[in-house]
Every structure is written in structure tokens, then in C-alpha cells.
Design a protein around this nucleic acid. Structure first.
Lengths: 336, 336
DNA sequence: CAGGGTTGCGTGAACGTTCACGGCAATTGT
DNA sequence: ACAATTGCCGTGAACGTTCACGCAACCCTG
């Protein structure tokens, strides 16, 4: 009743429909919609009103095609269910939004394939890529061609963007705390890495050797709290001596706390626990979690900054500093 | 050394570059890239190899323009930091990915404006919208024009997509549990809603009246755990009689548990606590949280299904069932 | 009142891809 | 032996928008 009478048009309104309705040309509509100069206030208002009435919205395809837009950032996340990643993603999205970019998110958990699948899905849709890609990191740059790629937590050989963490430093920090508290029988609970030991695990092992303490290494079946809980509950019985536990990340550490509780252990009296990452969850568990904290908002900011530099640098042909190493900070709470 | 020798071209390779390199036409390149019939295996392979070498990737703009693509879903989230939303978002992303759509995420927490700002940012980029938009829900459909909009947790008047929850039912469920456990002095901790009472709060109040119990209503300054913790720690001193606490959501309930602990109360002995939403966090806190659980993966699935229906229905001119009401389920754990 | 600037608007071209054809040669059928 | 089919490939047009112009009317200014 309000709009066109000549039948229901399934087709979306184009700039020409608006131009015809307003009795002006394409260019005038463009000027009105984009608040450009060279148009009278009256015409501008009239065109905008008509555009709204017709439900007109410029085609992002046509616009992007002619303007060569580079405003879509891909974000590949292994598992949005793990609170670490949303905390990071939130920062990336905020930072990208401030720059006028939009963020296309792909989660490759829950049977949505591998990190490489995620990159393959994102590649045609975005102008740059940020992600925790693990082993797929190398191929990512190949798929993305000349477009900026920033990979987190996976040191790259060639000159791509990379943000990694100083695990040797973090491991020494955590171990130092445990040793200073008089703990001598330390265990490390690692995540699943296809049977192998993670980079973090290697750093912890090195730090233990450096400090001259023996290290018991446990491995969970998955990077999840229930999995950590189960491993700790079962394995801890056989490791009576352990009085200090370092965990792959905070989510698993929270599970480990539960597992120790299940087994009737008191934290930190019987066994101190230190997590890694510093997510908000750590303050909600009991006892509150001592952790190697990372400022995830800063990490997100750094990632987007890197993309921004690569994006500008790529235009000018030069390759700016493309890698960055961040350090953890020890946050003491009740668990250690 | 591997690619072109005629200077570094900043411009991305187009289909014509590949065609020229392979000595064929555009169409043949198209056929090779999209695995279409009508091309010999040899040519296909050669073209694909050259495309990879030149770093060619089809322009999503040109492709979308000519094909009229409708494969971008906008997802507006109030706060990715609140674990409820990633749990939901994860499901939406998974479901959308299965359909071959991509998801553009906008987080309007952390000073990135209101829900309406998020819609305004997403509108030019997407073909449909899903989100927790609250008060901005009405204007969202206006901005999106004829494109599908699915709004969660905000009952809409007109015929847009809407997924809401049966709060009266949930409130009766929770109150029933508390009453059955002999609790008589019930409090409800609400989130911040600009000073007003939330829909959930109204439902709880109604259920309390229905059951003939008095209800103490507390209100936190924000929808966050620390905020809930603070309110509970301070206010609970003056409410000595309270022996049952119902909380707006699980995140705040986790904070409330901490607040009660701070005040020296034992849960559930001194005061039972029931949360809402059923996020994974509930199993990691101590005591584990009894909650009104929602299958968030099912919610995400339902949202994407609705969008799918609206998207197909819009083409055929008919408007399919556009709203849906989901029910909570009471999950008994230690806190009540 | 001639000249030059400003204001307001319109027209061809281009962005990169796919679609709908059309063409040519080799192969097949009778 | 000749038509019909098939396999492989190329060409014009279109998608909807913005950019770089062009043009006419109007206002000053000396």
C-alpha cells in the first residue's frame, strides 16, 4: 500500500530505480547517498527519502568493484567455545570496527574441518587474514597470495606477519613461583597435539631442566575443561608426590582444579595450580586461579595493527616489521 | 624470480592476466577455476597452475555482482566477552558454514556504540541479519529493508523473524525447585536495564506472586560477574533472611557465588543459587551451578534455519512461520 | 557587459566476473 | 558420404556503482 503498485518486485531496488523515482541521474543519487558536495540540500533530502522508501541500499558488490575496497578482515578461530578465543576475537572486532573494516569469522571447531579449510573458506571473502592456524599457518599465506596474513602462536620462517609468545620466559616465571613456594614435585598438564608435545610443553620441560627439577607430563585428550578434569582425577592418584601443577591454559586449569577437588585434594595446600592465558574465568573458579596472564585485548590490537601495516606496506612495496613476540605476566591469586 | 619480470605490480591479478598467461580466453579460465564442464583436463590443470602462480583469486565483488550472491550473514552480538554469546555465535557460524554462507560479526560492547550502530555497520555488508539487538530490534528491520532479520530475545510485533524464550515457564521451574527445597525467602538478581526491570525479572516477579512468596529484587550495575559479585557481597548483609537466589544469567550467577563466598555464606546450605542459560562455566565454578539451561547450539540452529526460510520465502513472496518460542530446562547441580 | 568562477546536475567509461550464446573441428551415426 | 552430435573454446552483454569529465545556468567583479 505504501510503495510500488506495479506488482511485487522480488528484485532489490537499484540506484536507477531511485534516480527514476526522483527524476534525477545516477550520479545525483550517489551524491545524495554518500553526502558528497555538488548537490542542493533539497534534492539531497528528497533523494534520501525516496531511497529509504524504496528500501534502496547500495550494492556492496558494485561499490567494492569500482572502488577496489579492502575492508574485509578474515578471522579464523579454532574453537569459539573456548573463552580464550572470544576474548581475543572481541578485541580484533573492536579494533577492526574502529578502522571501518568488517570481520568475517570462521570457527573450525565442531567438525568444521581443519584450519586450512577455514582459510579456504575465508580466502575468497576477505582482503586480509588473522588467525590461530597452527600447522595450517604456512599454507595460509600461499592461499592468500599477496594479501596480508597474521598468524598467532606459530612462529613462521618466511616474512609473514606473526605474533608469538615468549614461552621460555613464561615457563621460567611459573616454575620460579612454584619453586619459591617450596614446591618440588612439579607436573605439567598439556593439551592434545596429536600425541606430540606442544610448544608450551617444550618450554616448560626446558625450564624444568634448567631449574634442575623433575617434571611429570600429563596429556589431556582435548583442549577442554572436562578433558583436563578427567585426566587429573584419574592420573593424580598415581602421582602422590606432586605438589605443583602447571597447566596448558586457564580453561584446562579450571578443569584441573575440579579434577583435584574430585580426588579430594586441597588447592593450594596439597597442590598449587598455575594456569596460562589470564582469561576472566580464572577469577570465578574456587580457588581463584594463579595464571600467566596475557593482555588479550593488546594481542588483538597488535594483530590488527600488523594487518594494517602490512596492508599499507604492501601498497608501497615495502615489508614492515612483520613479527612480534609478547610476554606473559604472572598474576598471583589463590591457587598458587 | 618465480613470477613476472616486468616490475612489481601492486595491482592484484585478474582473470585476464591468467587468460593471457595461459593463452586462452576469460571464459576458459572461469571454467577451470569453477570446475565447470566443457574444458579439457589438460587445459584445466594448466590454467589452475598458472592461476596459483600468479596469485590469482576471483574478485568477490565481480562475482557477487554478476551472480547476485546472497551468502553473507550478519551477526550482531552485544558482548563477545560474555560466554553466553560465543556459545551461541559458535553455533550460528557452524550452521552458516554448512550452508556455504559466511558470517560477518559485529560486537557492540566495549564502547562500539549501540545495537543500532552495529546494524548500521552490518547493513551494507550482509544479506540477512541475526542478533541480540534488544531495543534496536524494531529499527533493524527498517534498515535492512526487505532482507531477512532474525531477532533473539525480543518479541516483535510485526512479521519479522523472532526467537524468544518462555520466561514465565522458566521462572516457575526455578521457583518451584527452590520452594520444593524448602526455601522461602527468595531474591532475584537482575542485570542492568537502564534502571528498568528486565523481561526475565518481570517473569520471575509474576511467578513469585503466583506462588505467593515475597521477592527481593537486587540489580547489578552491569551484565558481568564482577558487578554481580559486588552487589551480592554488599547487599546480602542486609538481607539476612534470604535463603534462595535466582540470577539473571549464569555469568552473573558465578559472580554471585563469589559474592556469597566473600560474605561468608555457604552455598547451598545458607542460600541456594540458580542461574540461567546453561553455559559451560556453570560446571567449573564451586559449587557447580544449578541452572535453567538452554541448548544454545539449538538456538543458533533455529536462528539460521529461520533466516534460511525467510530467504527462500522472500523469493517466493510468501512469509513462513517467522517466530519461535523456546523453553528452558532445569539442570540440577550442587548450588540448589 | 565580457570574462571567470561557482553551483547543480548529467553522461561515458571502467571495475572483474559470469551468462547466454555462437563457432569450429573432430567424432559419431546411418 | 553426409548429416548430426559432441568436445572445446571464444565473444558480446550484463550486473550496479563510482570516477572523471562535461555542460548549462547563475552570480560576481571590474
Amino acid at each position: 500500500m505504501t510503495s510500488s503498485s506495479s506488482g511485487a518486485q522480488a528484485r532489490r531496488a537499484t540506484i536507477l530505480d531511485v534516480a527514476a523515482a526522483a527524476g534525477v541521474s545516477r550520479q545525483t543519487v550517489t551524491r545524495a547517498m554518500n553526502d558528497m558536495p555538488g548537490i542542493s540540500a533539497g534534492t539531497r533530502e528528497r533523494v534520501q527519502r525516496l531511497a529509504a522508501e524504496l528500501g534502496y541500499s547500495p550494492s556492496r558488490f558494485a561499490k567494492g568493484l569500482v572502488q577496489g575496497a579492502r575492508t574485509s578482515l578474515g578471522l579464523a578461530i579454532p574453537d569459539l567455545t573456548n573463552p580464550y578465543f572470544p576474548a581475543f576475537a572481541s578485541s580484533v572486532v573492536e579494533e577492526a570496527t574502529q578502522r571501518g573494516w568488517n570481520v568475517v569469522v570462521d570457527d573450525f571447531g565442531h567438525g568444521s574441518g581443519s584450519g586450512l579449510d577455514a582459510v579456504a573458506r575465508l580466502e575468497p571473502q576477505v582482503d586480509a587474514l588473522v588467525g590461530y592456524l597452527g600447522a595450517a599457518s604456512n599454507d595460509a599465506q600461499t592461499l592468500m597470495g599477496r594479501r596480508p596474513v597474521v598468524v598467532l602462536d606459530y612462529p613462521l620462517g618466511h616474512a609473514a606477519g606473526a605474533i608469538s609468545f615468549d614461552y621460555p620466559y613464561a615457563a621460567r616465571l611459573a616454575l620460579g613461583q612454584l619453586l619459591a613456594a617450596g614446591r618440588r614435585h612439579i607436573a605439567y598438564l598439556d593439551s592434545d597435539h596429536d600425541g606430540a608435545v606442544s610448544t608450551r610443553g617444550l618450554a616448560v620441560a626446558a625450564a624444568a631442566e634448567e631449574a634442575g627439577v623433575e617434571l611429570v607430563v600429563l596429556q589431556a585428550a582435548a583442549d577442554s575443561a572436562p578433558s583436563a578434569r578427567e585426566v587429573v582425577r584419574i592420573k593424580v592418584e598415581r602421582q602422590r608426590g606432586v605438589d605443583g601443577l602447571l597447566v596448558f591454559n586457564d580453561l584446562m586449569a579450571a578443569g584441573a582444579l575440579k579434577g583435584l577437588h574430585d580426588a579430594g585434594w586441597k588447592v593450594p595446600e596439597d597442590c598449587a595450580v598455575i594456569g596460562m592465558d589470564g582469561i576472566a574465568l580464572g577469577e570465578l573458579v574456587t580457588p581463584e586461579l594463579t595464571t600467566l596472564s596475557l593482555d588479550l585485548r593488546a594481542v588483538g590490537r597488535a594483530a590488527v595493527d600488523l594487518v594494517d601495516n602490512l596492508l599499507s606496506g604492501a601498497v608501497e612495496g615495502r615489508s614492515p616489521d612483520a613479527s612480534l613476540v609478547l610476554k606473559h605476566r604472572l598474576v598471583l591469586r589463590q591457587s598458587a
